[in-house]
C-alpha cells in the first residue's frame, strides 16, 4: 500500500481532531497558537489548551501501544541547526499568526485568504531552504 495510505489516514485523524475542537469547543486547532497561549495568564480556556497539548504529547506513545512500534524519526540536523530552526519557527509562527495546523489544516479548510498566502509562502520558503541547505551542506 506504500506510504500514501497511512499518510492519508493520519491526515484524516488530524482533520477529525480539528473538527472536534471546532464543533465542540469552538476553537481553531492551531498548535503554535495554543502552545504560545500557554505563556499567558491562565484564563478559563487555559486548562483546555493545556489538555490539548498534553493529549498531543500522548499521541506518539498511544500510537506505539496500538501498533507495536514507535513512529520512525530520523533527525538529520545538528543541535546548533535545530536551535536556530526552533527560534525561526517560534518567532515566525507568532509573527505570521500560525503554522502548518492553524493556517494549513484549519485556514485552508475555510478558504481564508490570509492562510492561503501563508501556506504558499512557508511551503516556498521551506523548498528554497532545503534546496540551499543541500547545496551548502551536501
Amino acid at each position: 500500500m506504500g506510504p500514501y495510505l497511512p499518510s492519508l489516514a493520519g491526515g484524516v485523524l488530524i482533520g477529525l481532531s480539528a473538527v472536534m475542537l471546532l464543533l465542540l469547543n469552538g476553537r481553531i486547532a492551531g498548535v503554535s497558537g495554543l502552545v504560545a497561549g500557554l505563556g499567558r495568564r491562565p484564563d478559563r480556556r487555559w486548562l483546555a489548551d493545556l489538555a490539548f497539548v498534553a493529549g498531543l504529547i500522548l499521541g506518539p506513545p498511544a500510537f506505539a501501544a496500538l501498533s507495536g512500534h514507535w513512529p520512525e524519526m530520523r533527525i538529520v540536523a545538528s543541535l546548533p541547526v535545530l536551535a536556530l530552526a526552533g527560534l525561526l519557527v517560534g518567532f515566525g509562527t507568532r509573527l505570521g499568526s500560525g503554522c502548518t495546523s492553524g493556517h494549513g489544516v484549519c485556514g485552508l479548510a475555510r478558504l481564508s485568504p490570509r492562510s492561503i498566502v501563508a501556506v504558499l509562502t512557508f511551503l516556498a520558503s521551506g523548498v528554497v531552504t532545503v534546496f540551499l541547505a543541500r547545496g551548502l551542506l551536501g
Binding site: 502552545v35 504529547i57 541547526v81 530552526a85 518567532f91 509573527l95 499568526s97 501563508a118 521551506g126 531552504t129
Partner: peptide, 30 residues
C-alpha cells in the same frame, strides 16, 4: 507584511530542521 515575513521565517526553520510545531511538541514524548 508580518503574515508573509512570519511565514518566510517559519518555512526556513521548517526546512532546516524538518520540524513544525505540532510534530515537534508531539515528539517530546520520545
Amino acid at each position: 507584511r508580518p503574515l508573509v515575513l512570519g511565514a518566510v521565517l517559519f518555512g526556513a526553520g521548517w526546512g532546516l530542521s524538518g520540524f513544525c510545531p505540532g510534530p515537534a511538541v508531539a515528539a517530546l514524548s520520545t
